[in-house]
């Protein structure tokens, strides 16, 4: 298929065109942390994301209260700090599962038996209410996608005004993981009669616990 490649590139090289300058993006005026959190909350709530502001250590208590109340009996966590904390502080009535083996070994169980997944995130974008996730060995891709409820812990200090700012601040061009995500609300569709419905393929609910 190198032949196809060479043909295509050759065809594309038959013309020389001037490339217009793409002016640099104007910097977004800086905003203080509280303003960013308010913007983030407003934007995410507009797409049915749930946002709770908690003190640093309070998320365990929140889970212990809320998970049983929401009917979550099987909670999935990664192998990182969050999963470790949950393992050392079991929540009564909630079975903790760890995403600690290749998905092939337990795909059916993952798809059928898990009620909620919990992850951290690399930060968030205030303008659009988006969470930035870089799945990896400790928090695999499907952890934030397959369970019907996705709970995210967000450090309030990691809010960025917009995507351009986040890309610069987090040095995305220095190397991206195999998969990076922006998540803005629960899964949705409007494919039938333009009527918005939630949880078509991904989580039906997205809960963000803003810490700090």
């Amino acid at each position: 298929m190198n032949e196809a490649r060479n043909h295509i590139l050759k065809r594309l090289r038959t013309v020389q065109r001037e490339a217009p300058d793409t002016n640099a993006l104007p910097a977004i005026a800086g905003a203080d942390a509280e303003t960013l959190i308010t913007r983030f909350r407003t934007a995410l709530e507009a797409v049915r994301g749930e946002v709770h502001r908690l003190r640093d250590g309070d998320w365990m208590g929140w889970l212990a209260r809320e998970l049983p109340a929401r009917g979550v009996s099987n909670l999935l966590a990664g192998t990182g700090k969050i999963g470790h904390t949950l393992q050392t502080h079991p929540i009564p009535g909630v079975t903790l599962h760890r995403y600690d083996r290749p998905v092939e070994d337990w795909k059916d169980a993952l798809f059928e038996h898990i009620d909620a997944g919990i992850t951290g995130c690399r930060g968030a974008i205030a303008a659009t209410g988006s969470l930035i996730l870089w799945p990896g060995p400790e928090e695999p891709r499907l952890l934030s996608l397959v369970p019907p409820l996705h709970i995210v812990l967000l450090d309030a200090a990691n809010l960025h005004a917009d995507l351009a700012t986040a890309i610069r601040a987090q040095g995305w061009t220095q190397g991206l993981p195999t998969n990076a995500l922006l998540i803005t609300g629960p899964s949705k569709t409007a494919d039938i009669e333009q009527t918005l419905t939630w949880g078509i393929h991904g989580p039906r609910e997205l809960v963000v616990l803003v810490l700090g």
Binding site: P102, R141, T178
Partner: peptide, 18 residues
């Protein structure tokens, strides 16, 4: 949109899915 998905590679040896 709800998801913006950036794919920059297949599953690495230490990853559990993808």
């Amino acid at each position: 949109t709800t998801y913006v998905n950036f794919i920059s590679g297949p599953r690495r040896a230490d990853e559990l899915d993808g």
